[in-house]
Amino acid sequence: MSKSSKIRVVVILAVVIALYVIPQSPLTTDNTMRIGLLIALYCTLGLMWNLMAGYTGMVSLGQQIFIGIAGYNVAVFATTFGLPFWAGMFCGAGISVLLSVALSFLLFRMKGMYFAIATWITSEALKIIFTSWEFVNMGGGMTIKLRPYPDVFELYYISLTLVIGAFLVVFFVLNSRIGLGLKAMRDDDDASAAMGVNIFRAKLLCFMISGFVTGLCGALFYINQGSIFPGPGFGISWTVAAVFIVIIGGIGTITGPIVGAIIYVFLSEFLSQYQGYSMIILGVIAIAVILGLPYGIVGTIERKFGFEVLSTRRTMKNLLSGGRANVDYSRGRDLRVSK
């Protein structure tokens, strides 16, 4: 391990420990905890959208499928069956995985915009089904009844662990052979298939991971919120949030979603009394970023200073020790050999 990467690991560990320890200080209030919780959850949401759009080229507009499914699972498990929240949470995430497998057979036949809209239509269809399904109280929504109800500190710690887990999963998937195949696939579907990348399996893996983690994330969102309705539960705003977070932070970068999530949560908190304005501002920022900073805030900084907090790039050392490639196809645009 080189000196700079040692420093990097130490810094990352210090930040992680600080995030766990700070809430114990007397200065933290329920409100700061709530903001921390939201940043962690939105960051996870962004990471999972990024895993699909930024690394595999599957622009999903249907992340709310998993949010709604998991949210309803928690509500049904807790309120209808009187079970603890984690049961509903994991069952919801499990159903999300099953759903992603089932949907993959339909969705993976489509590329680009067809995939995007098909995921959206699926979520709209689910919205209608849940609105007319008596078991989940139709359009009336459900209240999540838990005894004892987990407090904001507990939820913060669960969400923090979730977001760190999500980072680790994304990091390891992208640094594995599958990750290399995924990036090759994003840049050129046909060429990577010809080189022996099993596209279906690689895409399915990402879709399943995305479904599972987004499901956990959705469950936590709704435990925090206390009630769920089909309209917002399967609403496009979840994906809007994920898209804005990733674009502003930097599509195809691992750390971009952190920056994006912080900006997103702060903007929507500060402007919460002016409903709608935060979305206009975020929309303008997102379009400006796409036009002016095509790699997002983090992506642009990384390119300018040649520094990456978490790299998924293959290096020569990896190659010598059994990695497979020393070439980085950065978003298919600039092709450069790593040092």
Binding site: V59, M113, V243, G283, A286, I287, I290
Partner: peptide, 10 residues
């Protein structure tokens, strides 16, 4: 595609 998505939200 993403710009038009942002546009729709605005």
């Amino acid at each position: 595609l993403l710009v038009m998505f942002g546009m729709s939200i605005i």
